[in-house]
């Protein structure tokens, strides 16, 4: 009763398998309907960006896909099974979640925090990969340099990368990342999205909440735009980034131009020039 029972380990899903899915999802928080009629599917091998204005329901959708929040209506499935049917330990082998803010109650070191990501695999055959997984996660996020330092002594951006390293060390086929780039400098924002692409290339499904439409356009296979608790558009960036719709959703006129070299769509707010005189 006190020890963990041995469990069947998840097989690596073939590319294209739907790893997280919401159908007609409705989520109610404190009496307010935050999500309504949301449908989305995320497949192994793709990066899906959730974008939208503040309060549109991005983090709520991510939390529902992570089974942090119960569905008031509709259904959520993770790895092909209704979310509610998974046990906590089994689910931890299949999806990893990066929260918006990383906190830590005691002065654990960076390496200890990253190693916590291996906890779900304790007592399974994959335990042998622990050291390799921790080292790889720290290398990818460039935190190996301060591995022995206490987490509490790091800057906000460093903490965010350590939290991401912990999530990567968990080595699950589904990654749910809530604003992983919020506290990061330009270089590390690119680094994190490159890591997302690499994980997708390795067969993972990656869902990432982003504020920066430029990053979403450059790295995501699909962009889902949330607006007032519904999905306003869902598709490849070139189809979704359309000036009228983006302008309406954000309440800010924008123009969409093609990058002169790569041709990827760039969303730019329409500004009245640099004339700030009254």
């Amino acid at each position: 009763m006190l020890r963990r029972r041995p469990r069947p380990l998840p097989q690596n899903p073939p590319p294209g398998t739907v790893l997280a899915e919401a159908r007609a999802l409705r989520v109610v928080l404190a009496g307010r309907t935050v999500l309504d009629g949301v449908g989305i599917g995320v497949r192994a091998g793709e990066v899906v960006a959730l974008v939208g204005p503040n309060g549109a329901g991005k983090s709520t959708l991510l939390a529902a896909l992570a089974r942090d929040l119960p569905a008031a209506g509709g259904r959520v499935a993770i790895a092909g099974r209704p979310a509610a049917e998974w046990g906590a330990a089994e689910l931890a082998l299949r999806r990893a979640v990066l929260p918006q803010a990383a906190e830590l109650r005691f002065p654990f070191t960076v390496e200890e925090v990253v190693r916590m990501g291996r906890a779900p695999w304790a007592g399974t055959g994959a335990e042998e990969e622990d050291d390799a997984a921790v080292a790889e996660a720290m290398r990818l996020t460039e935190v190996a340099g301060f591995a022995p330092r206490p987490f509490s002594a790091l800057s906000g951006g460093e903490r965010a990368r350590v939290a991401l390293a912990r999530v990567l060390a968990q080595r699950t086929p589904l990654l749910l990342l809530d604003e992983p780039t919020a506290a990061l400098d330009l270089r590390h924002q690119e680094l994190v999205l490159r890591v997302c692409r690499e994980r997708a290339a390795a067969g993972c499904a990656v869902v990432v909440v982003l504020h920066d439409l430029g990053l979403a356009g450059a790295y995501a296979d699909r962009v889902a735009v949330l607006h007032e608790g519904r999905i306003a558009a869902d598709g490849p960036p070139s189809a979704v980034f359309e000036a009228e719709m983006i302008g309406r959703v954000y309440g800010q006129p924008v123009e969409v131009i093609k990058h002169p070299a790569t041709g990827e769509p760039l969303v730019l707010p329409i500004r009245d020039g640099r004339n700030f005189a009254p």
Partner: peptide, 23 residues
């Protein structure tokens, strides 16, 4: 002592601990 490792995970906060398989 059987709950020591799970207590470590709880230091991350309740939601992250749950994400790592802790009931």
């Amino acid at each position: 002592p059987l709950y020591a490792r799970r207590l470590d995970l709880l230091a991350l906060g309740e939601r992250p601990a749950r994400h790592l398989g802790v009931d």
